[in-house]
Design a protein around this nucleic acid. Structure first.
Length: 404
RNA sequence: GCGGCUAUGGUGUAACGGUUAACACUACAGAUUGUGGUUCUGUCAAUUCGGGUUCGAUUCCCGGUAGCCGCC
């Protein structure tokens, strides 16, 4: 019996409603996964997280390895005990940091490319770009793994698939990811293909490293990651390859352009087994979550809710608003009159605007809390809608209000 | 009353007899999708007033005004 099991309660075209069982309890899917990079969701207490309806959190291998070190977490009794979070946990493998500290370091590239960057990328070889900017990067990739300098103190480190898995065993999350390379959206086709095939080899090595550890196999499940950028043929190749391996679940990772995201997902999902959970890494914005659900994705993690909140932007049913804008200084209305998040009922836009403008941490906490509550409710609502056969109406109604 | 010093965006500073007077903060706006915790990118905004010298003055000169310091 595997530690991670998945059952589907209902299907609606490609979308599904299910339950993931883990040693720390179950997850009703579709589910949003708050990001707890350094074993905390920035500005949010675990008890608050629970009251917002969070079912699971995702921590990061790279960050916890550097500080405090995986041994500290292990000796604490694992991630759950360390951070006093009793529900299921996940860890990301550190593969994303290969991108964020490598090709994207010190640049404005994000994992979601805009249209123009795309066009720009057509004629540009990322290999050249990489050589040019290698001095400014903290990570260098080779076939065996990644060598990087710590962003904290400049010290030299190396991750291989085996090392990433070893660290993730020490962290002890219920579900964790194979070590992968998240490519830049500005990379050309050849680079995407080569990086994807390298990721496949790393997936195989990650899986073998995990299965060798009998003890960890009783407590933790491993997810393989599909890459391939925005190219549907690469996404298909990647999905077939990763699906053929004995993973407990799958993740769709990497970079896209906004327009091609769902095409890439569809191409991948086609080749994934029905009976295993699918996680959409780093997605997303409200509309993207609903699209992902429609395409058959089960879980989603994203930093947007907390990052936007910290920087003063909150979600509302009528689209995102920037609370630090002058007009909100004297708006004595709820953060979102159409979506009151429990625990924030009494706060007005004017008050939170004041806190954020004053640099008060409570402002960031309230805005993060609101955004997390908003997103979790959105995804939970989608689950209900799927169960009641009204998902498309649910999605359309939301999109009509949010993107009006 | 006399003498000296100072006067540059909202704030604190910079600069020069010569294009669009610089910088930081503030203000205003934008960005953010597996987090490098208060980040990144833009924008608005000033030479105290009146004369004079000069091709040209924020800069040099005279005066007014204001502030600070000293003296009686």
């Amino acid at each position: 019996m595997r530690p991670i099991t998945f059952s589907i309660e209902k299907r609606s075209e490609r979308a599904r409603v299910g339950t993931i069982s883990t040693p720390h309890g179950t997850l009703q899917t579709p589910a949003f996964v708050p990001v707890a990079t350094k074993a905390n969701v920035k500005g949010i207490l675990p008890s608050t997280l629970e009251s917002l309806g969070a079912q699971v959190t995702l921590a990061n291998t790279y960050h916890l390895y550097l500080r405090p070190g995986e041994q500290i977490v292990k000796d604490a009794g694992g991630l759950n005990t360390f951070m006093d979070w009793k529900k299921p946990t996940m860890t990301d493998s550190g593969g994303f940091q290969v991108f964020s500290l490598g090709a994207a370091f010190g640049k404005t590239i994000t994992k979601i490319a805009k249209g123009e960057e795309n066009a720009l990328a057509q004629g540009v070889s990322v290999y050249d770009e990489g050589v040019q900017s290698q001095h400014g990067q903290l990570a260098i990739i080779d076939e065996e793994g990644v060598t990087f300098t710590s962003h904290l103190d400049g010290s030299l480190h190396r991750f291989t698939p085996e090392r990433s898995i070893e660290i993730q065993h020490a962290l002890g999350a219920d579900m964790f990811f194979a070590f992968d390379e998240c490519t830049s959206p500005t990379a050309d086709y050849e680079y995407q293909r080569d990086a994807m095939r390298r990721t496949h080899k790393w997936a195989d090595r990650s899986l073998k490293a995990h299965r060798r550890n009998i003890d960890a196999n009783k407590k933790q499940g491993i997810f393989g990651i599909i890459q391939g950028g925005r190219h549907t043929d690469l996404r298909e190749e990647s999905a077939k390859e990763i699906a053929s391996m004995d993973f407990d679940g799958f993740g769709i990772g990497g970079s896209f352009s906004k327009e091609d995201m769902m095409g890439a997902v569809q191409a991948a999902v086609r080749h994934l087994p029905e009976e295993k959970p699918r996680h959409f890494l780093g997605i997303g914005e409200p509309g993207d979550l609903l699209l992902g659900i429609e395409e058959g994705m089960d879980t989603f993690d994203c930093v947007a809710a907390t990052r936007l909140g910290r920087h003063g932007t909150i979600y509302t049913k009528r689209g995102p608003i920037t609370l630090t804008n002058e007009k909100f200084r004297s708006e004595y209305s709820p953060l979102d009159p159409e979506c009151i998040v429990p625990g924030t009922e009494g706060f007005t836009r004017a008050y939170v605007s004041h806190l954020l403008r004053s640099g008060e941490m409570l402002g960031q906490m309230i805005a993060s809390m609101h955004n997390l509550g908003f997103i979790i409710r959105l995804v939970d609502g989608a689950r209900e809608a799927l169960l009641e056969d009204r998902f498309s109406e649910y999605r359309e109604e939301f999109v009509r209000g949010y993107y009006a």
